[in-house]
Amino acid sequence: MTCSIVSLLFFLFGYLIWKKKMLFLIAGYDEETFVGDKEKLAKMTGIFSIFIGVITFVLPFGLETIGSISGIVYTVIILISTIIFVIKINMKN
């Protein structure tokens, strides 16, 4: 139940950032100091949020079928994808 609610929030924020261009939802975003392409930032951040929502929704099913190893895999996926996301965002600026 908790993972479903959290994943719905990630879907919602991903949609609002990507499609509705509500960039103020991005932590640390300052419109006055940002010099990159806002469209690309919105798209990348929105897709990343939706991706996190999908794997958060799938997590309880993995825990039920595979066991606690799926929690470790979930953590590794989150860490690696976040590192890659931050590197890509910084390279775009």
Results as ranks from 00 to 15, higher is better:
Leu8Met: 13
Leu8Gly: 14
Leu9Arg: 04
Leu9Asp: 02
Leu9Glu: 01
Phe10Ala: 11
Phe10Ser: 08
Phe11His: 08
Phe11Leu: 12
Phe11Pro: 09
Leu12Met: 11
Leu12Asp: 02
Leu12Ala: 15
Phe13Asn: 04
Phe13Ser: 11
Phe13Thr: 15
Gly14Met: 06
Gly14Arg: 10
Tyr15Gln: 05
Tyr15Cys: 10
Leu16Val: 06
Lys19Gln: 12
Lys21Tyr: 06
Met22Ala: 10
Leu23Thr: 09
Leu23Gln: 09
Phe24Val: 09
Phe24Met: 12
Phe24Glu: 04
Phe24Ile: 10
Leu25Ala: 12
Leu25Asp: 08
Leu25Ile: 13
Ala27Cys: 11
Gly28Pro: 07
Gly28Thr: 05
Gly28His: 09
Tyr29Asp: 04
Tyr29Ala: 06
Tyr29Arg: 07
Glu31Val: 10
Glu31Met: 05
Glu32Gln: 14
Glu32Trp: 03
Glu32Phe: 09
Thr33Asn: 13
Phe34Ala: 09
Val35Asp: 04
Val35Gly: 01
Val35Ala: 13
Gly36Trp: 02
Asp37Pro: 06
Asp37Val: 06
Lys38Ile: 01
Glu39Leu: 09
Glu39Thr: 13
Leu41Gln: 06
Ala42Glu: 01
Thr45Leu: 03
Phe48Ile: 06
Ser49Glu: 07
Ser49Ile: 01
Ile50Asp: 01
Ile50Lys: 01
Ile52His: 00
Ile52Tyr: 00
Ile52Trp: 00
Gly53Trp: 00
Ile55Ser: 00
Ile55Trp: 00
